[in-house]
Amino acid sequence: MDNKSAILATLAYFDLFQYPLTEREIYFFLSRHISPPAFEQALGSLLAEGRVFAMEGFYSLHGDAGLIHRRRAGNALAARMLGTADRITGLLSHFPFVRAVGVSGSLSKQYADKDSDIDLFIITAPGRLWIARTLLHLLKKASFLFRRQDWFCMNYFIDETALAIPEQNLYTAIEIVTLLPLRGARAFSAFRKANEWTDGYLPNSYGRIVYAGDDRPSLFRRALEKLFAGRAGDRLDRWLMTTTARRWRKKTEAGRRNNHGILMTMDATRHTARPDPAAFQGKLLDAYERKVGELLRTARPSRPLNA
């Protein structure tokens, strides 16, 4: 793939989400390493050919000013929601066996709309993921009383023995490099090291400013961790895993869907609790491949008026 094709492919991925990019973001998400001058030349050529459109500092495959308005509004809402997310992650980090909490999903990419949740990525102590998850989900159950359940979308758990994400593809690479660590600097540092394979997909994804604080463990956390440190904790964690996995299988078999219309599935192991990757990743990557194929096959489009 040459430089211009790589730029088109990057814009095509985010076009699936109707999300125009800045010049810096295009370079960050490129699938190949090229020098800044070569990047500028390739982008300029695409603009001159009318295959890419520039508006108000953003670049897109479409000359649609509505996309820019949508992004600006989404960025503004995300900035407000991230303040809430910081408070939420501060609370969750005090729960037993929680070692790190970060923001994932669209919010980690600085975008939100009226239907957005605060998606949370959580790293736990080894062998205690299911105890941690159960305690956190009791908190989420309570949040329904105050209609704040969208603040506690704890949909991805791994423990410190399973930091490497097994699915190695463009989707997971982008999710990993855009993850916003908010609590647990040490655990997230180890997580990033365990997933250095992302450099093969996104060789320019460096220099992103992230923040992860480390709060002093609460008395509640220290007491519960001491209580479940031995064999009793091992047995409880295994029982919670088995019970939860059985309940989720029933939801999947019944065709239950979440509030976004996505089938409720779970990949449950002793060291992971996450949505089944086959439920979403495959469809998205297939759509991406088709879009890129069409872009690289089709003739040069004409530039619309006022673009």
Rank of each mutant, 00 (worst) to 15 (best):
F152G: 04
L61T: 01
Q41E: 15
D119E: 15
E294M: 09
L296M: 05
A164Y: 11
W248K: 09
Y201A: 02
L179K: 00
F188R: 04
A185P: 03
G233M: 04
W197V: 01
S108C: 09
R238W: 14
G63M: 14
L284A: 07
W239P: 00
G184P: 01
L77E: 05
G200Y: 14
Y201L: 02
L224I: 03
A78T: 06
A73K: 09
A194V: 14
A164Q: 14
L224D: 02
D286N: 08
E25R: 03
N258T: 04
R274I: 13
R183V: 07
F280L: 13
L67P: 02
K140C: 10
R70C: 02
G207S: 06
A54W: 05
R147P: 05
L135F: 04
K4M: 13
L77K: 06
W239Y: 10
A48N: 12
A54G: 08
R148Y: 01
A85T: 01
D15T: 07
A112G: 09
Y201V: 03
P96M: 11
L236A: 03
L305P: 06
Y111A: 08
G83E: 12
Y156W: 14
A112P: 12
M241G: 00
M266G: 00
A132Q: 03
H33Y: 08
N195E: 10
R238A: 12
E253A: 15
V103P: 05
L11C: 05
R80N: 08
G233T: 08
T134D: 05
T22I: 02
D215G: 11
T84N: 11
K141F: 14
F17C: 07
A38R: 09
P126Q: 13
L139D: 09
R133N: 09
T269E: 07
R24D: 15
A273S: 15
T272S: 12
I118T: 06
K140W: 11
G83N: 15
A6L: 03
S205V: 07
L30I: 03
S60H: 11
R99W: 01
D214P: 04
R222V: 03
N3I: 00
R71K: 12
R148D: 04
V210W: 08
A76T: 12
P277A: 01
R235S: 09
L145F: 09
P301K: 02
P181D: 04
I174H: 01
P301Q: 03
R256M: 15
G102K: 09
L135M: 13
L107C: 09
L219A: 10
H94W: 07
S218C: 04
I209C: 09
M81W: 05
D237E: 01
A194D: 13
F191H: 06
F53Q: 07
R32N: 02
R71P: 01
T198C: 04
E167S: 06
L240D: 07
K114W: 11
S143R: 05
G57L: 14
H271Q: 13
I176Q: 04
D199S: 06
I7P: 01
T22R: 05
G50W: 14
F28H: 02
A287E: 15
L170I: 06
I158N: 01
L305V: 10
M264K: 11
A287R: 13
A142V: 13
R216K: 13
A54N: 08
N195L: 10
T269Q: 12
P126G: 10
L16D: 07
T243I: 11
S45N: 10
L182G: 00
K4P: 07
A142Y: 13
